[in-house]
């Protein structure tokens, strides 16, 4: 591309988009995901406002301890992923892979805890159609769990194709999964 055809900010003008760290498309994805989860959580709270008694009775059946454990697991996993990027930037590729492995392993722990939670609900005969609350619970936490699965796959991929750019993008996705959980957890599990 010829330089004189590029659109550049005028002298002294601020290029806001260039202030975003990493890939622009990753930020588009992060913003979209936040909007989707945010909208679902708002609708969930609106459902609560319609029938708070039934909602509270259903919500009381959730395991807050499992949710809290998963919060610790995910924030620690996010830390491991951040250290992996730092190691890769310092050309410590083996170390970076180990940290990515730790992040992914904690992602698996998250899914196991979530699996126990779902199994415990299933053993009580609670499913997605049991009530409006449980429809939202399964849809929102299930969609989030799918993101965790995707994140683990992406972390494994960048442990193999380990350019700094790939790793930064994958880890940004992982932090987004973490970010969604810290907003989802209090609304679904804690606010009673």
């Amino acid at each position: 591309m010829r330089d004189d055809l590029e659109i550049r900010p005028a002298e002294g003008e601020r290029d806001i988009l260039s202030e975003l760290p990493g890939e622009l498309m990753m930020w588009v994805l992060i913003a979209s995901e936040l909007l989707v989860f945010g909208a679902a959580l708002i609708v969930c709270l609106a459902v609560r406002a319609i029938d708070p008694v039934k909602y509270a009775a259903d919500q009381a059946m959730l395991d807050q301890t499992a949710g809290a454990i998963n919060t610790l697991v995910l924030v620690t996993s996010g830390f491991c992923a951040a250290v992996a990027v730092r190691s890769r930037e310092r050309e410590e590729r083996r170390k970076a892979r180990l940290w990515l492995g730790a992040a992914g392993a904690l992602g698996i722990v998250f899914l196991i805890v979530k699996g126990f939670e779902y199994a415990s609900k299933a053993s009580l005969g609670i499913g997605i159609e049991t009530s409006q609350f449980f429809t939202f619970y399964y849809l929102i936490t299930g969609f989030h769990a799918l993101h965790v699965v995707a994140g683990i796959v992406v972390l494994a991929l960048v442990a193999w194709a380990d350019s700094v750019r790939n790793m930064e993008a994958a880890v940004a996705f992982w932090h987004m999964v973490d970010l969604v959980w810290v907003l989802l957890f209090p609304i679904i599990y804690v606010l009673r």
């Binding site: 202030e19 760290p21 932090h175 209090p186 609304i187």
Partner: peptide, 26 residues
């Protein structure tokens, strides 16, 4: 308080882990 703490956690993740601390605007 619970929601405020969630907001603070989100700020830590955005600022430190996702690197937005370097841009006041974002």
């Amino acid at each position: 308080g619970v929601l405020l703490l969630a907001g603070l956690k989100a700020r830590v993740i955005l600022g430190r882990y996702l690197g937005l601390a370097g841009s006041h605007f974002w």
